[in-house]
Every structure is written in C-alpha cells, then in structure tokens.
Design a protein around this nucleic acid. Structure first.
Lengths: 178, 178
DNA sequence: CTCTGATATATCACGCTGATATATCTAGGG
DNA sequence: CCCTAGATATATCAGCGTGATATATCAGAG
C-alpha cells in the first residue's frame, strides 16, 4: 500500500476513536510528538489520501455553521495498520543541535561548552516535567501508552544525568583540549 | 546571518581542514550522522551559499581530469561559527518508528510487540558496534569528539537495557491490555 | 455585545532525504 | 595491457515534513 509513517499515526489515532484533523493534531501534540511529530500540512493531505484509498472514512459533522469532518478507520484501514505493526521498525533519527555544538566545541575555550551542556540539561528537565504532567492520563490508559511514556521519562533522566556528568568533567579538567 | 544548522556542520568541518563536498559528506557519515545527518542535496548548495556569503572559500584542485573544489573557512566564517557556538541549542528532534509501533501496539495481541522491541534492541546493538569501531579514532582526537562518541555509546546501552526490560515485562504479564 | 481563545481547515516556502545520473580516476586480476 | 569494480566528485529531483500564516466560525467571560 506504500504509506508514509505519518499515515500510520493517523490510522492509529482514528482507530481508538473517530476524530477530525484538528483533534488528531491535538492528540499528536500531547502523545506521539516526542518520538514522531506531525503538522497540519501533513495531516490534512494524509486524511484525504487515506480516504481515497478507503482506509478511513470521513463523515461531515458540522458544529453549527462551522464545517467539520470526522474520520474513522475502515476494516481495510485496520488491516493495514495491523500489517504495519508486525513489520520491524526501520526509521530511527536523532537531530540534536546540542550534541552538534559539543562536537564543534573545540573551536572555542572549553568553558564555553558549559552554556551548551546546561541548555541541554534544562531542555530535558523541561521535557520530563511535561511528561510527568501527562503521566496520570497515561496511567489511566495503562498498557503500551504508559510503557512508552515512562520510557520517555527514563530517557530524559538519562540525558540530564549525562549532561551533569559532562559539566563536571569540563569543570574538573581545564585541559580538555580540542 | 541566518544560516541553517547544516551550514554550521559544513563550517565546523572545513574549519579543522579544507575539504571537498564529497569529503564533507564522508566525514559527516562517520561522525555527526548519529545526531545530525546531511545529504549531498544539502551539502553542495550549502557550500555555494556559504561561498557567496564569504564564509568559506573554494579553490579548484582537480585530480587529473576530474574536477574538484576544496573549501576552507574564512575569518568571517570562523567568527560566524564561534558566534553560533555561544548560543544555546534549540532543535532536539527524535523520530523513532519503533516507539510509535509500541505506542499503537494495543491494536494487536501484546506478544506481537516483542517483534518491535527485539528489532529496536538489535538496531541499537548495531549502532553501539559501529561507534565502538570509530572509538580508537575518537580517542586519538580526544576532547569533545571523544565525549560525544562515548555519549552515543552510553545512550545506545541505555536503550538496549530499556528494550530488554520491556521485553521481560511483556513476557511476564500476559495481561498488559490495550 | 464584544473580545478572546478554541475549533477547523488550508496553504506555502523552505529544509532535507534518498535515489539516481554522469563522469573520471585507481587498483587489481586475468 | 585491458577490463572491471569501486572510490572520487558533483548534480538533480520527487516527495516528506515543518512552521508559520491565513481564514472563518463558535463559545464563554466580562
């Protein structure tokens, strides 16, 4: 069927209950965003494609004069989602400007790298906070939702710890060099 | 000056020694790729832009009849790179199809998630191997190069450990649910 | 009644990837 | 000596995905 990964995000979310494009974006922003983001510019065209392929079905449910299309998954869509789930995952990509700055930190005195390390640590501390706020909801859902969220928290903690250790290393040795 | 982050990758790499676009891509593939990838379609246009802006300087150094342009950093380019390094990093993005599949794993019996978890673990085990192969080179370079590489290995180990624990959790509780 | 913010959809420039094309050089085997 | 495989070098392009922005309607607070 050859769908983009984001298409499966859409399928997976309309499966648990029917949603509009706007709602999908909102759910993405407080769930999958941490490991798979999606924007409106992706979601709306994707809904149209999936609809044409018969994997989701859109029903007009206007609220007053404001138009609104709610999509639900079809049998074919569910089959497609399940088939995808049984395939081993492929993409893993990281884009971390902080690590990049550390990598090039030899172009300045070593102390300057502390700005980067502290900013990285602060960033992950904030992420942990965000995830902890969602945690009650995930606890209610249980299962894999909770597993993935707790994984995110652990990952954040790992990163915060690493930054702290590296900060101390830089402070301890003024001879880090290049 | 408003450069893309990839522009700074190019600046950072031509700073340590002058390189062609092809060489830049090769170095990226065995260093920054793990936290900031770049493709030819990005590197060559970027070199042209940086050259026009006077941040790098290209010199034709053909090898026989095969043309080749080697770029080196200018004073303005070095200043630009250093200014960027003192700014706190912004982008941190993760794109992990495995976590996504886990998140939607409720659409199939829990045991099916083991395929995903095992593939994720294998992926990170391979990454660790790759990094360990580069380690001697990084040890020679020392400083931040080594710091970032060792960080990558630690991160991989964290992930492998997490996958292992989750696999055992799934096996232990056949009642993980949705 | 009006203003603010949430709901809903759409669009677009730009960054970036992955694949592919073209051409030249080098090293090694037959 | 020639041929082939692989490395060097540059370029191009469809398509994914982002972030910002635009338009319009609705609900609730003051």
């Amino acid at each position: 069927m050859d769908l983009s990964t984001t298409a499966y995000v859409v399928l997976g979310l309309v499966r648990v209950n029917p949603r509009s494009g706007y709602e999908i974006k909102a759910v993405v922003d407080e769930t999958t965003r941490f490991f798979w983001a999606a924007s409106y510019g992706q979601i709306y065209p994707e809904l149209r494609k999936l609809s044409e392929a018969g994997l989701v079905e859109g029903v007009d449910e206007p609220t007053g004069g404001r138009k609104r299309t709610v999509y639900s998954i079809t049998d074919a869509g569910l089959a497609e989602l399940q088939a995808w789930l049984t395939q081993p995952p492929e993409t893993f990509e990281l884009r971390d400007e902080g690590l990049l700055k550390l990598f090039f930190a030899g172009a300045l005195p070593p102390e300057e790298s502390l700005t980067t390390l502290r900013a990285m640590r602060a960033h992950h501390e904030e992420k942990i906070e965000e995830l902890r706020e969602i945690e009650p909801k995930a606890e209610a859902a249980g299962g894999f939702t909770l597993m993935v969220l707790r994984g995110g928290i652990e990952f954040g903690e790992f990163f915060v710890d690493w930054c702290g250790r590296m900060e101390r290393q830089v402070l301890a040795t003024e001879g880090v060099g290049t």
